[in-house]
Design a protein around this nucleic acid. Structure first.
Length: 639
RNA sequence: UGGGGAUUGGUGUAACGGUAGCACCGCUGACUCUGGAUCAGCUAGUCUAGGUUCGAAUCCUAGAUCCCCAGCCA
């Protein structure tokens, strides 16, 4: 069995580094276990046999002699990972890192009817993207990537052992009959097969394995307690007949273990110390304990005796899952959105899947930061989706280069802009543009770049009003506004089409405000005040780009709460596609990186954060809006 | 009605018998070449009822509300 489970060296007194935050309840449990020496310490052999040296800097010598902390993330490959899984990944991987332990990615692939290689691949990609490193060399003796199906042989041997011990039996009730005889909280279940002779169960179980019986015709059940108030203990099914090929074991098996039978054994085999799962599995814990105890019954510490050595018994800890508002997380609902075509696929940017969030432009840092932020408890809670949005805003504000883009263009002509006397065409001015004001002081040579300006520009339609309300600090007839990093302009007129629609705004600029600075008076103060600053692009230089404006997929906090059907709460405006005009700088700067499955991210000033979509091609940029900037004007104008 | 859990401002989370704190949201104001960011301030909480104690969010008793469990899913 791979990782040693009976190490007896004393616990290290070393405590993990402070993070400034109080320990959450699982960390407290881990530290108490470490102090008590409950799981022993990492030994040279346990390290050598279970992990190769992919990240030598992450230090085996450091782990050596430390109390053993070994966690895992155990997804079933029957769908894509979502933010809820991210919390579990961050928790499990975070514990392993914090306590110099190990982290396994293990696929719980016990049901060939629902599982596919596509899901395996996507899950590996998403876990890596989140930054939860595991050793990718496959297999029990190679590293941190495991498959439950690798243990089918082990599990089968344990099952035979339980039959021999009189603790399991082959039951020939159909699924319907089992259901009908399940009983009630007060009335026990029944099975006419539970006292069948051991030899007969052994023979039938072998026939099940060899595929001589039809799917559903019989099961292997644990003999526990048909009257237990905990239904999980009413002789649960351990194996069912499923004569289907498996993505990993092909057609080696005709029977497959049930989750409840398999899961605890997987953790035991891998030497997992803390089996962390969500609240709904608390009711199953007595069953997992029973299975391990049943196997250990008659076994000895030193391996002497008929049944061999005792197996490892992990400690299960349950926590409350992450539940964001305005979205759905269950695989059933997600699958329905994908298959019905309501969204474009598992990586649709409106989906809470990790691949959807990645395509939307979310950074893995921001998702990790949210998970750290919401904490770990046993109380069920709902997290406002706004917190996820805040997390990515915070990260991107600090890191994303700025650019200008006009989503709904309105033409502006600067009447007093000079022509070049030689060509007779309008002068082109190249102005300084700050790449990211948050990092200006330590930006070095990349802190500024040039942006072209000329006589004809485009501004945002929303930034002009012919008849503005109070506190509208933008462009309107007779009023001044600053063009970001360029000039102060004043509106001197508008041009309308035959329908009365404004098609052009006429302005004059003040040459003394080049760069956007207001000249200083004799007192050293700016000679006048300009309230508003708006973004713009030069008509001659701007490049067209497709911009996909995403919004929340659902309008209701809890989709389906009102009518019972979550589809009733779909947001009809969850996507809007516009033809925008963007800063020519983006033609060079904006790339999609297929190797990372991520596009470059930018802040389009005053609009929000945007990333390059994988649909972009060399001659056409496509951007996804990750999230808008906070907009207090929008809030103000709604009043 | 059986079993297993949970309950602290609008939201999330600390306080582990000794001053109910932090973050987000909201609201003020300052600052600002992004109505962004930043900074300062304000609002607001221990599910209920009893009890133990000098002292209770914390311990005890009773109740309320919410979540999970009767798949050959995980």
């Amino acid at each position: 069995m791979p990782p040693s489970t009976d190490e007896t060296s004393p616990p290290s007194p070393d405590q993990p580094a402070e993070t400034g935050r109080p320990l959450h309840f699982i960390e407290q449990i881990v530290e108490a276990d470490n102090t008590a020496g409950r799981w022993g310490c990492w030994s040279p052999s346990s390290i050598a046999t279970t992990e190769s040296c992919r990240t030598p800097s992450d230090g085996e010598p450091r782990r050596l002699g430390m109390p053993r902390v070994h966690t895992r993330f155990p997804p079933e490959p029957n769908g894509y990972l979502h933010v809820g899984h991210a919390k579990s990944i961050c928790l499990n991987h975070g514990l392993a890192r914090r306590y110099d332990g190990k982290f396994n990615l293990r696929f719980d692939d016990t049901n060939p009817a629902k599982e596919e290689q596509e899901y395996v691949d996507s899950i590996i990609r998403d876990v890596r993207w989140l930054g939860a490193e595991f050793d990718p060399s496959r297999g029990m003796h190679g590293g941190g990537l495991y498959f439950a199906s690798d243990y089918f042989g082990h599990m089968h041997a344990f099952a035979v052992e339980l039959i021999r011990k009189g603790l399991a039996y082959v039951c020939q009730l159909t699924a319907e009959e089992v259901s009908a005889q399940r009983g009630t909280p007060q009335v026990p279940a029944t099975s006419p097969w539970r006292d069948r002779p051991v030899e007969e169960s052994l023979r039938l179980f072998d026939e099940m394995r060899r595929g001589v019986h039809h799917d559903g015709s019989m099961t292997l059940r644990a003999r526990i307690d048909l009257a237990s108030p905990n239904f999980n203990l009413r002789d649960p099914v351990m194996y069912r007949i499923v004569r289907q090929p498996h993505h990993n074991t092909a057609s080696a098996w005709c029977i497959y273990p049930m989750y409840d039978w398999a899961h605890g054994l997987e953790d035991s085999i891998e030497g997992i110390t803390h089996s962390i799962c969500t609240l709904e599995f608390e009711n199953h814990r007595p069953l997992y304990d029973w299975f391990i105890d049943a196997i250990n019954h008659g076994r000895s510490h030193d391996g002497s005796g008929p049944w061999g050595a005792r197996i490892h018994h992990p400690r299960q800890i349950e926590f409350a899952k992450l539940r964001p508002t305005h979205t759905v997380l269950s695989k059933r609902n997600l699958l329905k959105l994908v298959e019905s075509g309501i969204v474009g696929g598992w990586d649709d940017p409106r989906l809470p899947t990790l691949s959807g969030l990645r395509r939307r432009g979310y950074t893995s840092e921001s998702i990790r930061s949210l998970c750290e932020d919401v904490g770990v408890t046993r109380a069920e809670s709902v997290i406002d989706l706004g917190r996820l949005e805040n997390a990515v805003r915070n990260h991107l504000n600090a890191t994303a280069p700025r650019a200008m883009a006009v989503l709904r263009p309105l033409k502006v002509v600067v009447e007093n802009w000079p022509d070049d006397p030689r060509s007779g065409k309008p002068v082109v001015d190249h102005l300084d543009f700050v790449v990211n004001p948050e990092t200006l002081e330590h930006g070095g040579s990349s802190a500024r770049r040039k942006v072209p300006f000329s006589r004809v520009l485009y501004i945002e339609r929303d930034d002009f009003m012919e008849d503005p309300p109070k506190k509208f600090f933008r462009l309107s007839p007779g009023q001044e506004v600053r063009l970001r990093w360029a000039y102060v302009i004043r509106c001197v007129g508008v041009v309308k089409d035959s329908a009365g629609e404004i098609v052009e705004v006429r302005c004059v600029h003040d040459p003394a405000t080049r760069g956007g600075d207001i000249p200083l008076g004799p007192d050293g103060k700016p000679i006048r005040k300009v309230q508003g600053t708006i973004h713009w692009v030069s008509a001659q230089h701007a490049v067209p780009a497709e911009v996909r404006l995403y919004d929340r997929l659902f309008t209701a906090e809890e989709p389906g709460a009102a009518t019972g059907s979550y589809l009733d709460d779909l947001n009809p405006k969850s996507i809007e596609i516009v033809e925008a005009l963007v800063d020519p700088y983006l033609v060079q700067a904006a790339r999609f990186h297929a190797d990372r499955d991520e596009g470059d991210r930018f802040q389009f000033e005053r609009l929000g954060y945007f990333c390059v979509d994988r649909d972009s091609s060399p001659d056409r940029l496509v951007f996804n809006r990750t999230v808008t900037l906070k907009d207090t004007w929008a809030k103000e104008s709604r009043r």
